[in-house]
Nucleic acid binder design. Structure first.
Lengths: 363, 363
DNA sequence: TTGTGAGGAGCGAAGACCACT
DNA sequence: TAGTGGTCTTCGCTCCTCACA
């Protein structure tokens, strides 16, 4: 067997070695850029390898080096904008560092699925795991992990020792959004939050609460959505009934869209009757019928940090936690304005929503 | 060495075998569910394996079986709704069949990146490739692929012999959208298409053209966006200037959103002055300030078909092409209505856009 | 003969160690 | 003594062959 060609299966190192007339080890050295090979020989080996279409066998290499360079990702709600774009950021970050991702997306957050997912990832030989699921639903421990490290930005995972938690201070971003509304003159700000088991939802809510507290304003009861536009709409119908609601901060843009719909349906105009601030700055936020004021954060940077931290753990670093100052920027568009009673004289137009935006749109 | 425990690295088959007092081969049989093992012995082996936290080494297995069960995916524009959700559908489909995905997302569509991506995937030992990029920018050939099969729903890839193309008739969906507008009484329908190198964009446009042709209506010049809300907005500004535009079919929902914004900015109301049909039925389409009429297709089903086709090729099937009847459904909401001149008597309200929707929203 | 099990040979590459210049 | 390059072994597992009830 193995008479050189071996059909469609592709050449292996020995084949290249024989063809060049050197040992397999020498080819190995060339392929891995190891020293102690004359430049001319190196070039010849490379040439022959390319000519034969040689491609190193990852399995063989992984077997002997005990390294797979695979990083597992457990994600959820991947049809959502946030989670989806984070996965792709992770993918890029991993590639840059010579790792690849093994993705598992969970249909729901049952604990059983979680464990199965982790188990599967471990079975694939991944050397570290990134969790992109609500940390409250993660039920794993050191025994299950078998020493594989974890990194995440969703908050600390209980019962896992080798982990690094990246905390991206979203509180400040939530505070920023709320403060903007207070600055405009609103007496207080309502909040449509995300699911409480999501770390990001809790932080944004905390930021909102902090801003109100600092300004000594009453804190209305929080309404909790599920990130979807529909939940924003349903909760928005409730808010629309209350005449004392003049400003709302929603935990993400899609909920804000639903809210805008609900308010419109109740004949409350935006921003004359109610001002709205979203979160995420999804690409279409700027192009809503009422362009949405929102907070833009640098999610990709966080993903990169998470991946760096994980790689550090894999390569022998110490577990720990880092608080990362997440860049955030308030993008003011047309969905926010002063409360009606303060500008009553100037804006009696029946159709504020359809007016030209305050901010020109950039191309 | 290898004195049973071997520290944190986990047990291997021999360890389990020794512990049970059988040969390593017997453990192998048990793990792989092979016959010729007494039930009691099987149970004991399983118990000990679990107790020791034994996990098969995928690299070793792959090395000897020459199978990796990895499927490569080359995706693009993954922050877009369509591509992102397709990737996750593929992931589920793959898992069901015992395969896993290796994802590569391209930052842009340079040919160089394409080749690098394929090369990387092949280097990882993937047994098949799914292309989720515009087929026009794919520059690969049998030599590069080295016999690895390809499956895709983006149209045939030149110079690749082992491929199966799943054609999901989106033409019909485009026709449906256009016909709806014609049925409402619009003289003709304008079209904001997607990038022409995307197969889906071409098909949707063709459907639009076919509907107009069948009805013997004039075909306005097509405007081409890039799937983004911003492009819909910019092109929409042009359409807004023309008083003869009463109906527009956009190739996706996000472009439709931009268009709605542009029309609103130009003080044209939706649907009184202009009716709009989108495509995709993204979750937030229903909750826009003017709920969007759109076409919903079963993308996930197509992804499953693509994956099935690829697995068939991997496991020895014949290349070919399948035309799949893609299920589609027109979701009529508030962004479409009869043209103004036909209902002039009844709807002189200055603010049609903000009125309650025609369709009640389901919970 | 039919289960049931053990023993040995690789899979493809990398590392330790040795042997030439 | 450096620099070069070759030999032999090993990684963990599956398949093939063969020995025993």
């Amino acid at each position: 067997m193995r008479t050189g060609g071996r059909g469609a299966k592709g050449a292996v190192m020995v084949d290249v070695a024989r063809r060049v007339g050197v040992s397999q080890k020498t080819v190995s050295r060339v392929i891995n850029g190891a020293p102690h090979v004359r430049p001319e020989l190196r070039a010849r080996v490379l040439a022959v390898a390319a000519e034969m279409g040689y491609r190193p066998n990852v399995a063989a290499r992984a077997l002997v080096t005990q390294r797979t360079h695979v990083i597992g990702v457990v994600a959820m709600g991947t049809s959502l904008f946030g989670p989806a774009s984070r996965v792709f950021s992770l993918e890029h970050a991993a590639r840059e560092r010579g790792y690849e991702l093994a993705l598992t997306s969970l249909p729901d957050m049952s604990l059983k699925h979680m464990r199965t997912a982790i188990h599967g990832l471990l079975g694939r030989g991944c050397e570290g795991i990134v969790l992109e699921v609500p940390n409250k639903v993660v039920d794993i421990d050191d025994a299950l992990l078998g020493g594989v490290p974890v990194a995440t930005s969703v908050g600390p995972i209980p019962h896992v020792s080798r982990q690094t938690v990246i905390t991206s201070d979203q509180t400040e971003a939530g505070r920023l959004a709320t403060q903007h509304l207070l600055d405009l003159g609103h007496e207080t700000v309502w909040h449509i939050g995300g699911p409480e088991h999501w770390h990001a939802a809790r932080e944004r809510r905390q930021g909102w609460a902090a801003a109100l507290e600092a300004a000594k304003r009453p804190q209305p009861e929080v309404l909790h959505g599920d990130w979807s536009a529909k939940s924003g709409y349903l909760l928005g119908l409730q808010l629309a009934k209350r005449r004392d609601v003049t400003a709302v901060f929603t935990a993400n843009d899609h909920q804000a869209m639903g809210l805008m719909r609900a308010l419109t349906e109740a004949n409350r105009s935006i921003p004359r009757d109610v001002s709205i601030v979203g979160f995420d700055d999804v690409p279409e936020a700027e192009f809503q019928i009422v362009p949405l004021t929102t907070v833009r954060t640098d999610d990709a940077a966080i993903s990169h940090r998470v991946l760096s931290a994980l790689v550090a753990l894999i390569e022998g670093g110490e577990p720990g936690s880092e608080v990362v100052e997440m860049s955030r920027e308030l993008i003011v568009r047309s969905s926010t304005g002063e409360p009606a009673h303060r500008t009553r004289a100037g804006s009696m137009s029946p159709n504020t929503a359809a007016r030209a935006p305050r901010e020109s749109i950039h191309h």
